[in-house]
Lab assay of single mutants.
Amino acid sequence: MQIFVKTLTGKTITSEVEPSDTIENVKAKIQDKEGIPPDQQRLIFAGKQLEDGRTLSDYNIQKESTLHLVLR
């Protein structure tokens, strides 16, 4: 499924993921596309910071959901 990751600069990254993918996994995909190390990434969805060990389905993230990427 496709999800969108919006950066603070307003850029939107499209990523191909599975509901069973972990947040860590998603951060790795963002690193592949943007070159941002996962340890600098914080992903936010519905006002919550997403934890690395959890999966997209844990957070009820569905296709075409938009996550927000904040850098630390």
Rank of each mutant, 00 (worst) to 15 (best):
residue 1 M to T: 03
residue 2 Q to W: 11
residue 2 Q to D: 05
residue 2 Q to V: 15
residue 2 Q to C: 10
residue 2 Q to H: 11
residue 2 Q to N: 11
residue 3 I to H: 01
residue 3 I to E: 02
residue 3 I to L: 05
residue 3 I to Q: 01
residue 3 I to C: 02
residue 4 F to M: 06
residue 4 F to A: 04
residue 4 F to C: 05
residue 4 F to E: 03
residue 4 F to P: 01
residue 4 F to T: 07
residue 4 F to H: 10
residue 4 F to Y: 13
residue 5 V to F: 08
residue 5 V to Y: 03
residue 5 V to E: 02
residue 5 V to S: 01
residue 6 K to I: 14
residue 6 K to W: 05
residue 6 K to D: 04
residue 6 K to H: 13
residue 7 T to A: 05
residue 7 T to I: 13
residue 7 T to E: 03
residue 7 T to W: 13
residue 7 T to K: 04
residue 7 T to V: 09
residue 8 L to Q: 14
residue 8 L to W: 15
residue 8 L to S: 14
residue 8 L to Y: 13
residue 9 T to H: 12
residue 9 T to L: 11
residue 9 T to N: 13
residue 9 T to V: 08
residue 9 T to E: 12
residue 9 T to S: 13
residue 9 T to C: 15
residue 10 G to T: 02
residue 10 G to C: 07
residue 10 G to K: 04
residue 10 G to H: 05
residue 10 G to D: 04
residue 10 G to Q: 03
residue 11 K to N: 07
residue 11 K to Y: 12
residue 11 K to A: 09
residue 11 K to I: 10
residue 11 K to F: 10
residue 11 K to S: 07
residue 11 K to C: 11
residue 12 T to V: 14
residue 12 T to L: 13
residue 12 T to S: 06
residue 12 T to K: 08
residue 12 T to Q: 06
residue 12 T to P: 03
residue 12 T to Y: 10
residue 13 I to Y: 10
residue 13 I to V: 06
residue 13 I to L: 09
residue 13 I to P: 01
residue 13 I to S: 02
residue 13 I to F: 12
residue 13 I to W: 11
residue 13 I to G: 01
residue 13 I to D: 00
residue 13 I to C: 04
residue 14 T to I: 14
residue 14 T to V: 14
residue 14 T to L: 12
residue 14 T to P: 07
residue 14 T to A: 09
residue 14 T to R: 10
residue 15 S to I: 15
residue 15 S to P: 09
residue 15 S to V: 15
residue 16 E to A: 09
residue 16 E to R: 09
residue 16 E to F: 13
residue 16 E to Q: 12
residue 16 E to H: 11
residue 17 V to D: 01
residue 17 V to Q: 05
residue 17 V to K: 00
residue 17 V to P: 01
residue 18 E to V: 13
residue 18 E to N: 13
residue 18 E to P: 03
residue 18 E to T: 14
residue 18 E to C: 11
residue 19 P to T: 07
residue 19 P to R: 07
residue 20 S to V: 05
residue 20 S to I: 06
residue 20 S to N: 12
residue 20 S to G: 11
residue 20 S to E: 10
residue 21 D to F: 08
residue 21 D to M: 11
residue 21 D to T: 11
residue 21 D to E: 09
residue 22 T to I: 04
residue 22 T to Q: 04
residue 22 T to R: 07
residue 22 T to N: 04
residue 23 I to A: 02
residue 23 I to Y: 00
residue 23 I to N: 00
residue 23 I to F: 02
residue 23 I to K: 00
residue 23 I to Q: 00
residue 23 I to D: 00
residue 24 E to W: 15
residue 24 E to Y: 15
residue 24 E to G: 13
residue 24 E to V: 07
residue 25 N to K: 14
residue 25 N to S: 15
residue 25 N to G: 09
residue 25 N to P: 02
residue 26 V to C: 01
residue 26 V to A: 02
residue 26 V to P: 01
residue 27 K to H: 02
residue 28 A to M: 14
residue 28 A to G: 10
residue 28 A to S: 11
residue 28 A to K: 15
residue 28 A to Q: 13
residue 28 A to W: 11
residue 29 K to A: 07
residue 29 K to M: 14
residue 30 I to W: 01
residue 30 I to N: 01
residue 30 I to F: 03
residue 31 Q to K: 09
residue 31 Q to C: 14
residue 31 Q to D: 05
residue 31 Q to I: 06
residue 31 Q to L: 11
residue 31 Q to M: 13
residue 32 D to H: 11
residue 32 D to P: 03
residue 32 D to Q: 14
residue 33 K to H: 10
residue 34 E to L: 15
residue 34 E to G: 07
residue 34 E to S: 14
residue 34 E to D: 06
residue 35 G to H: 07
residue 35 G to I: 02
residue 35 G to N: 07
residue 36 I to N: 03
residue 36 I to L: 06
residue 36 I to F: 11
residue 36 I to A: 04
residue 36 I to P: 05
residue 37 P to E: 07
residue 37 P to R: 09
residue 37 P to I: 05
residue 37 P to C: 07
residue 37 P to S: 08
residue 37 P to L: 06
residue 38 P to M: 15
residue 38 P to L: 14
residue 38 P to R: 14
residue 39 D to Y: 13
residue 39 D to N: 11
residue 39 D to Q: 11
residue 39 D to I: 10
residue 39 D to T: 10
residue 40 Q to H: 12
residue 40 Q to S: 09
residue 40 Q to N: 09
residue 40 Q to C: 12
residue 40 Q to P: 02
residue 41 Q to A: 06
residue 41 Q to I: 13
residue 41 Q to R: 02
residue 41 Q to K: 03
residue 41 Q to F: 15
residue 42 R to N: 12
residue 42 R to V: 15
residue 42 R to M: 15
residue 43 L to G: 00
residue 43 L to Q: 00
residue 44 I to H: 09
residue 44 I to C: 12
residue 44 I to T: 08
residue 44 I to F: 15
residue 44 I to S: 08
residue 44 I to M: 12
residue 44 I to R: 05
residue 45 F to A: 02
residue 45 F to M: 04
residue 45 F to C: 03
residue 45 F to R: 02
residue 45 F to T: 01
residue 46 A to G: 12
residue 46 A to K: 14
residue 46 A to N: 15
residue 46 A to T: 05
residue 46 A to Y: 08
residue 47 G to N: 06
residue 47 G to A: 04
residue 47 G to R: 04
residue 48 K to V: 14
residue 48 K to Q: 13
residue 48 K to L: 12
residue 48 K to C: 09
residue 48 K to T: 12
residue 48 K to E: 12
residue 49 Q to T: 14
residue 49 Q to E: 15
residue 49 Q to P: 11
residue 49 Q to M: 13
residue 49 Q to Y: 14
residue 49 Q to D: 14
residue 49 Q to I: 15
residue 50 L to K: 00
residue 50 L to R: 00
residue 50 L to F: 01
residue 50 L to W: 00
residue 51 E to G: 04
residue 51 E to D: 09
residue 51 E to P: 02
residue 51 E to N: 07
residue 51 E to T: 06
residue 51 E to I: 09
residue 51 E to K: 09
residue 52 D to A: 06
residue 52 D to H: 06
residue 52 D to I: 04
residue 52 D to N: 11
residue 52 D to P: 06
residue 53 G to W: 13
residue 53 G to L: 08
residue 53 G to F: 11
residue 53 G to Q: 11
residue 54 R to P: 04
residue 54 R to E: 04
residue 54 R to D: 04
residue 55 T to F: 06
residue 55 T to N: 05
residue 55 T to C: 04
residue 55 T to A: 06
residue 55 T to P: 06
residue 56 L to A: 02
residue 56 L to F: 04
residue 56 L to Y: 02
residue 56 L to C: 01
residue 56 L to I: 10
residue 57 S to D: 09
residue 57 S to I: 08
residue 57 S to K: 12
residue 57 S to W: 08
residue 57 S to Q: 12
residue 57 S to Y: 10
residue 57 S to M: 12
residue 57 S to V: 07
residue 57 S to E: 11
residue 57 S to R: 12
residue 58 D to R: 01
residue 58 D to M: 04
residue 59 Y to K: 00
residue 59 Y to T: 02
residue 59 Y to W: 01
residue 59 Y to I: 02
residue 59 Y to C: 01
residue 59 Y to F: 04
residue 60 N to V: 04
residue 60 N to P: 03
residue 60 N to A: 08
residue 60 N to E: 07
residue 61 I to D: 01
residue 61 I to T: 01
residue 61 I to A: 02
residue 61 I to M: 03
residue 62 Q to C: 05
residue 62 Q to H: 10
residue 62 Q to M: 11
residue 62 Q to W: 06
residue 62 Q to E: 10
residue 63 K to L: 06
residue 63 K to P: 15
residue 63 K to W: 09
residue 63 K to E: 12
residue 63 K to S: 15
residue 63 K to D: 14
residue 63 K to C: 07
residue 63 K to A: 15
residue 64 E to K: 08
residue 64 E to N: 15
residue 64 E to D: 14
residue 64 E to T: 05
residue 65 S to Y: 08
residue 65 S to W: 03
residue 65 S to A: 12
residue 65 S to F: 08
residue 65 S to V: 07
residue 65 S to C: 04
residue 66 T to N: 04
residue 66 T to H: 15
residue 66 T to D: 03
residue 66 T to A: 04
residue 66 T to R: 04
residue 66 T to V: 14
residue 67 L to E: 00
residue 67 L to Q: 01
residue 67 L to F: 03
residue 67 L to G: 00
residue 67 L to D: 01
residue 67 L to P: 01
residue 67 L to N: 01
residue 68 H to D: 08
residue 68 H to N: 08
residue 68 H to S: 07
residue 69 L to N: 01
residue 69 L to V: 06
residue 69 L to Q: 03
residue 69 L to S: 02
residue 70 V to P: 01
residue 70 V to Q: 09
residue 71 L to H: 07
residue 71 L to W: 08
residue 71 L to S: 08
residue 71 L to A: 08
residue 71 L to D: 07
residue 71 L to T: 09
residue 72 R to N: 12
residue 72 R to P: 12
residue 72 R to M: 14
residue 72 R to S: 12
residue 72 R to T: 13
